[in-house]
Design a protein around this nucleic acid. Structure first.
Length: 428
DNA sequence: CTCTATGATTGACT
DNA sequence: AGTCAATCATAGAG
């Protein structure tokens, strides 16, 4: 035998063979003979089959008619039976899918970057963390840092708006589908489990859209971050005032141009830069000065002259609190002040009798020298004769490149060794 | 465009 | 940890 008749029988689709259907037929008032019933059922099926081809209003009307049809409950039962069979085969397909590792990764990253998770606090904390990761220098409120924060919060805002939109759309769509299914459940058998399944399918679809959103958000954050990190290397020259302050300190501490931590902080504050930048600057300056003293001599002269003038005026006022060359005037280290005065003296001394070409610079400040000597002797800047003798060592640099190792003082009486002829090791 | 100056980074050293 | 030395990368002048 072929499949069709057997199916019809076993599923009760055979009109006469189905008990429920038969009963309804008997209960019914219309069909009295078999031919008429057949006609009737065929008619209904035909209507159902063609319902999709009709216009909405037409279909609605037809649906209503069908719902009220006397044969409807019987048909419903038949569908229920068929359903029971097919659902079994579907059931195997639905499985609990494990949490997507990629989604977890994205979630974790968004959380770490402060895009997802709790409001504001997390965002700025993450930005600060990113800034710190950028080299420890960015921890201060630099323009780039705030820029980064602003951009990140922008991304965060977009992300949340979109996420909310998706969630809303998802809920709306789910509600819509559920309503639809509930309504349909009047004409065809739909179990709650099926609705549940449909809902989970919808949710899965929407979460895949959400994943795309998360992915693009992550990309945006990465791009922003890489730009921010690249900005580290973007060099911006310090402003003129900052350079002058740093140079003033450097040349007035030429024998020992190693500012203490406090001095660095003070300089950083004055120059509106970070302590690290101050350290960088001094590191660069020392090495470059040492490599080419001749080149820096003019600069040294200029700052020495300036400091001399400053010192003179300080002396006149009987105060040194406002001297830019005494960042440690608070008095944290006595030796600091002492070397300060000594360095001034040294710088001027080198001017005094050098064979340097720009002799007129020296001549210009020649008058300052005596004043300065006077000032220094008055303030007791170098009561220690050893310290004074060190000053005369040409910039106090030894062949090992050491400033810190006490350089062998050439001679107090021979300060005339020109900076240009300091050492052969300067030719680098 | 090239060249120099200069701030930042890196690795070795103490 | 602080420094030196070499190097990178860019700003700015020409």
């Amino acid at each position: 035998m072929d499949e069709q008749p057997r199916l019809m029988h076993s599923h009760g689709v055979g009109m006469a063979g189905h008990p429920g259907l038969a009963q309804h037929m008997q209960d019914g008032t219309a069909g009295t003979d078999g031919e008429g019933r057949k006609q009737d059922i065929g008619d209904i099926l035909q209507q159902i089959m063609t319902i999709t081809d009709q216009s909405l209003d037409e279909a609605q009307a037809r649906k209503h008619a069908l719902n009220c049809h006397r044969m409807k409950p019987a048909l419903f039962n038949v569908l229920c039976e068929i359903k029971e069979k097919t659902v079994l085969s579907i059931r195997g397909a639905q499985e609990e899918e494990p949490q997507d590792p990629q989604l977890m990764r994205l979630d974790n990253m968004l959380l770490a970057e402060g895009v997802a998770g709790p409001e504001k606090g997390g965002g700025s904390a993450a930005a600060a963390a990113a800034a710190a990761a950028a080299g420890g220098i960015g921890a201060d409120n630099s323009a780039e840092h705030s820029d980064y924060r602003a951009k990140l919060s922008q991304i965060r805002q977009i992300y949340h708006t979109e996420l909310e939109k998706y969630e809303q759309a998802c809920n709306e769509f789910t509600t819509h589908v559920m309503n639809l299914l509930r309504e349909q459940s009047r004409t065809r058998p739909i179990s709650p489990k099926e609705i549940e399944r449909m809902v989970s399918i919808i949710h899965r679809k929407f979460s895949s859209i959400q994943m795309q959103l998360k992915q693009s958000t992550c990309e945006a954050v990465m791009i922003l971050r890489s730009r921010f990190l690249d900005a580290r290397r973007k060099r911006r020259n310090f402003n003129k005032q900052a350079t002058e302050i740093l140079n003033e300190y450097f040349y007035s501490h030429l024998s020992n141009p190693y500012p203490s931590e406090e001095a660095k902080e003070e300089l950083a504050k004055k120059c509106s830069i970070t302590v690290s930048q101050v350290s960088n600057w001094f590191g660069n300056k020392r090495i470059r000065y040492k490599k080419n003293i001749g080149k820096f001599q003019e600069e040294a002269n200029m700052y020495a002259a300036r400091t001399a003038v400053s010192a003179t005026s300080v002396s006149a006022q009987g105060s040194q609190a406002n001297s830019p060359s005494t960042p440690n005037s608070a008095g944290s280290a006595g030796s600091f002040n002492m070397s300060n005065s000594g360095d001034l003296f040294m710088s001027v001394q080198s001017l005094n009798g050098d064979s340097y070409q720009g002799g007129q610079v020296g001549a210009n400040i020649q008058s300052q020298v005596d004043t300065l000597r006077h000032v220094i002797s008055q303030t007791g800047g170098y009561s220690d004769s050893l310290a004074a003798s060190q000053m005369y060592s040409p910039q106090g640099i030894n062949t090992n490149g050491g400033w810190q190792d006490a350089p062998t003082p050439s001679s107090v009486t021979s300060p005339t060794e020109g900076p240009g002829s300091v050492h052969s090791d300067t030719s680098n």
